[in-house]
C-alpha cells in the first residue's frame, strides 16, 4: 500500500496524540489516583438519619486517616443538610454524601467536585481545598419542582 508522505505525517501526529492522551489518562488514574467519585458503598435510604455518619451531618475533624476532615452531607428534596460547609484552606477533605429520596447532584461550582447522589448509595470524593473562597453547591440532577432552588455553600476559610 502506498502512503503519501503527508499521510504518513498526519497519521504519525494522530497516533502520537492518541498515545500521549492515553499516557496522561493512565498516569492520572494509576499514579495520581484520580478516579470518578465512587458509589460502591450502599445504605438503606429509608434509615439514613439513623446510620453513621449521616446521623450527624456537617464537617468533622478526623484523626488517623488519609484526610483531615470529613464533610458529611445528606441530600433530600429540596435541600442539603447542612446548608453551609466550612473548611480551612489547605485541608484534605473527604466529602461523603447520599440521598434520602430521589437522585440528586452535588456539584461545587468552580471546582472538580461533582457527584451524583443516588438513594441507597454513598458517594465519596477526596480533595485538598487549596483556594479560599465561597463556592456554590448546586443540584445538577433534575429532582423535582424545587430543583432550581436546591443549593448549599462551601466556604473555604483561613485557619482560625
Amino acid at each position: 500500500m502506498h502512503l503519501h508522505k503527508y499521510e504518513k505525517y498526519w497519521l504519525a501526529f494522530g497516533v502520537g496524540s492518541l498515545i500521549v492522551f492515553l499516557l496522561i489518562t493512565g498516569i492520572m488514574a494509576f499514579h495520581n489516583g484520580s478516579h470518578p467519585p465512587s458509589a460502591k458503598n450502599t445504605i438503606n435510604y429509608e434509615k439514613v438519619d439513623e446510620i453513621a455518619p449521616f446521623n450527624n451531618p456537617g464537617v468533622h475533624k478526623v484523626e488517623g486517616k488519609d484526610w483531615d476532615y470529613e464533610a458529611v452531607v445528606v441530600a433530600s428534596a429540596f435541600y442539603y443538610d447542612p446548608p453551609i460547609l466550612e473548611v480551612p484552606v489547605g485541608a484534605k477533605v473527604k466529602f461523603i454524601a447520599t440521598s434520602k429520596d430521589v437522585v440528586h447532584g452535588f456539584e461545587v461550582a468552580g471546582t472538580n467536585i461533582n457527584m451524583m447522589l443516588e438513594p441507597g448509595y454513598i458517594s465519596e470524593y477526596v480533595t485538598t481545598v487549596d483556594k479560599v473562597g465561597e463556592y456554590l453547591i448546586v443540584c445538577n440532577e433534575y429532582c423535582g419542582v424545587g430543583h432550581a432552588q436546591m443549593h448549599s455553600m462551601l466556604k473555604v476559610v483561613e485557619p482560625k
Binding site: H4, Y6, E7, Y9, W10, F13, G14, S17
Partner: peptide, 12 residues
C-alpha cells in the same frame, strides 16, 4: 495534498 495537510495539522 499540501492544503489538506496544513488544514489537518492546524485542526489537530
Amino acid at each position: 495534498l499540501k492544503g489538506t495537510f496544513y488544514l489537518v495539522m492546524a485542526l489537530g
